[in-house]
Amino acid sequence: MFKRPTSGTFFGRSQASRSRPEDRLLLEALRQEYTPVISAKLAGGSDVTPSFDDIAGAFDAFVEELCKTGEWDRLLQKYLERKIAAERARFNPAAGK
């Protein structure tokens, strides 16, 4: 009925269109942080555990919404900036002192 993830992981369709390492890193971080949140929201306070398909489907919807609204790129940009700051500190420890 709803698209089943393709490879035993979530985000089947999203993953297909975004395969850069930084995308995968963000996806993994989101999966770790937000799968429990989504699962709880799908359960809606009941004792019934949502199905794998439903969690995956809702997660995909979440990721697609982030992409559509530009949040995805904004998060990656923030990551890039943080890594740049770290690199700067590594190469040029005097900076900022």
Partner: peptide, 14 residues
């Protein structure tokens, strides 16, 4: 921000 998005999309999905 992310909380609002996940809230909205999960409701939509449900």
């Amino acid at each position: 921000v992310l909380g609002a998005v996940v809230d909205r999309t999960t409701r939509g999905y449900k």
